[in-house]
Nucleic acid binder design. Sequence first.
DNA 1: CTCGTAATCCAAAGCGGTTTGAAAGAATTG
DNA 2: CAATTCTTTCAAACCGCTTTGGATTACGAG
Lengths: 347, 347
Amino acid sequence: MTMNLKQLSESLGLSPTTVSRALNGYPEVSEQTRLRVMRAARDADYRPDPRAKGLATGRALAIGHVLPTSVRTEIVNPVFADFLSGAGDVYASAGYDMILRMVANTEEEATYDALAKRRAVDGVIVHAPRVDEPRIDQLLRLGLPFVVHGQCQRAQEDYPWVDTNNRRAFEAATERLIALGHHRIALLNGDERMDFARRRRAGHLDALSAAGLTQDDSLLFNAEMTEAYGYETARSLLESAAPPTAFLTSALTTAFGVRRAADELGLRLGEHIALITHDDDLSYLSNGRPGAPVFAATRSSVRAAGRLAAELLMDIIAHPGSAPRTHMLEAEQLDGPSLCPGPHHAP
Amino acid sequence: MTMNLKQLSESLGLSPTTVSRALNGYPEVSEQTRLRVMRAARDADYRPDPRAKGLATGRALAIGHVLPTSVRTEIVNPVFADFLSGAGDVYASAGYDMILRMVANTEEEATYDALAKRRAVDGVIVHAPRVDEPRIDQLLRLGLPFVVHGQCQRAQEDYPWVDTNNRRAFEAATERLIALGHHRIALLNGDERMDFARRRRAGHLDALSAAGLTQDDSLLFNAEMTEAYGYETARSLLESAAPPTAFLTSALTTAFGVRRAADELGLRLGEHIALITHDDDLSYLSNGRPGAPVFAATRSSVRAAGRLAAELLMDIIAHPGSAPRTHMLEAEQLDGPSLCPGPHHAP
DNA sequence: CTCGTAATCCAAAGCGGTTTGAAAGAATTG
DNA sequence: CAATTCTTTCAAACCGCTTTGGATTACGAG
C-alpha cells in the first residue's frame, strides 16, 4: 500500500542503506544524492514506519503520560486536558507521539515499570506528584527520562521539574487579603497529599505569621477541588458563629461553589466577602474574559507549563546525562471584582 | 535488559516458534508445553515488544484519538478528559494503547491520513463531529476502523457511532419548562457547527412548536460553552425589554455563567428564573452532589459514552466487515432547585 | 508391517527500517 | 606512477516477533 524504503530505493537505483542515510542526515552521502533522495521521498509521500524505525533504533518516538485517576472518586482533573494540549504541540513538532494511560493510582508503579521495560516510550511526564513521591525514585532507578509537573519534598536539583511557584503565589494572595484588612481567611485548598497543595498552604501560613496573625486551623480545608466542595465548605463557614471575611481557593471550580454559597445567603463577593482563587487559565473554564476577570486570582497557565515540560523532556532525551534542569513559573497576581476591604481595613 | 522471546525459548529448550504459539493460544502446541511456557513467561515477567509484534502482525495495538483544538481559540473541551478516561479503561483491559494527537482543526485530515498510512493505529475515535463531517467519508475511504462520538447529518446506518439523544433530551427539557408555564425560553446552545448543538436546537424548537409557541430567534444563541458566554448572554437578555423567564444551557459552565448574571441582577434561579442545563456528568465539574443536583438537568455521562465507544471500536476491529453498529444513549431528566413556575403557570 | 493421519515442534523467511564493515572509485601524495 | 587517503555506495546482519512450510514422531488403521 504505502511505499517503503526498499521500494523507494529501487525506484532511485540506490541501496536502502544510502537512502536511509540520506534521509536521516548522515554525512556519508553526497549532497547531490541527498537532494535527489529527499525530493523523491517527498514526491512519493514516503514516511518511515515508526514501528520498524523504533525496532531498529531502540527508540520509541513516543512520550508517555500516566494519569492517575483516584480509584475511589474516579475523578479526572480537567487541567490535564490543557496540559496535554500544551505538551502535544511540542511533541508534534518534534515528531513524537503522545501515549496516554489512565490508571488507578494504585497501579501507577506497575505502569511505569511496564513502559520502561518494553521501551514503549522514550520518556514520561509525571503528573500530580504527591508530597512523598515514590515515582521519582522509581524512574531514576529505571533510567527512564522524565519531567515532573510539580515538585515533591526532596532536593530540588535531584530531578527535572516544571512548576508554578505555588508557595509564593499563595503567600502573595494572602498578603493582599491581609493588606485589605482581612484577618479571618479561609483556605479551601486542594488535596494536601498533593505537593502543590502543601506548598500553597505553607505560603498562606507564612504570610499570616509574617503579619503577626494567628492561624485558625478551623479555617483550613483540603479536598478535591470540586464545586460542591467549595459550596458546602463556604456555606457552613458563613453560617457559623465566626465566619471568615475572605476566601482563598485553589481552583476556579471551588470558587464557583463559594459564590453559590454566598449568593444563597445574600452575601456578595467583592462587597461582603473577598475571594482570591488560583486560576490555571484553562481554556474552557476561563476566569471571565481576557482583561476582565471575574475573580481576583493567582494565575498560571497550565498549558504553558505543559509546553515547557515537554520541551524540557525533549531536551533531556536529546542530551542524556546532563544535570537535571528545572523551571519555576511565577503566578500572575490578578485583580478582580471579588476583592473588597475587610473589617481591619485602615483607610 | 529485558528478556526477549529468543532467550525465553532457549531457557525452555524450545524454539521461538513454539513459545510464540504457546503464548498466543495457537492449537499446534500441546497443552502441557503451553502450561510450561506460560508459567516460565510469567516467572520471567516476559512481555513481548509491542513494536516487534506490531511489525510482524501489521497491527498497531493502539487506538488513536485526534482532538481538534480550535485554531483560533485554542480551546480544549474538558469533556475529552472524561471521555478518554472511560475509553482508556476499555483499551487497557484489551491490551491496547491510546495515542493522542492534539491538532489544529485545519490539520485533522492530514493527521488521519498519516495515521492510516503508517498503520500507527488500528482504529480511531472521531470526536466532536460537525454537521457536515468530512472525516467520516475520509475514514471510510481509508478503510480505517472508527467510531464517532456523536453523529452527523447522514444516514444513521452508514457508520458506527455512539451518541446521546440530544434532540430528545432538549425536547423533553423544553417540554418541562413549557409545562411549568414558561413561554420565553432562551437557548444558550453550543457552537452550532457541531452536530450535537444542531440536534439540541431542533429538539428545542420541536417542543416549542408542538406547544403552539412561536419561536423567537432573538432567544437562540450558540457559541463555545464557556462561563463568560453564559454570563454575558444572560446578562444582556435579563436587562433587555423582554427578558426570558427560563434558560436552557448546553453545559454546566454556561449555566454557572447564567447564575452569575442572575445573581448580579438580584434574580434567583428557581425563584425568578428557571434553568435547565445539559450535564455531561464530568467527574470534576459535577452538578452538585449525587442525589442533590444544583441545576435541573438533562444528564448523560460522557465517561459512559467513552466506554461504549471504545467497546464498539474493539468489536469492529475484532470483527471487520460486519455492518456498522450504533448506540444511542438516553439522557436522564434531573430535577433540581433551578426550576420554578413561569408566568403562564396554571395551578 | 506399512501407510496415512494427527500431533508436535522447528528452521527460516519475512515485517521495514538502521548500522556495521567492506568495496569501488576519485582524489591526493611522495 | 604507485601508494595512500577520502568519498561514496552497498551487501548483509540485526532489532524481536509471527508465520509459512516442512520435518519428526507417534498412532491407529488396513
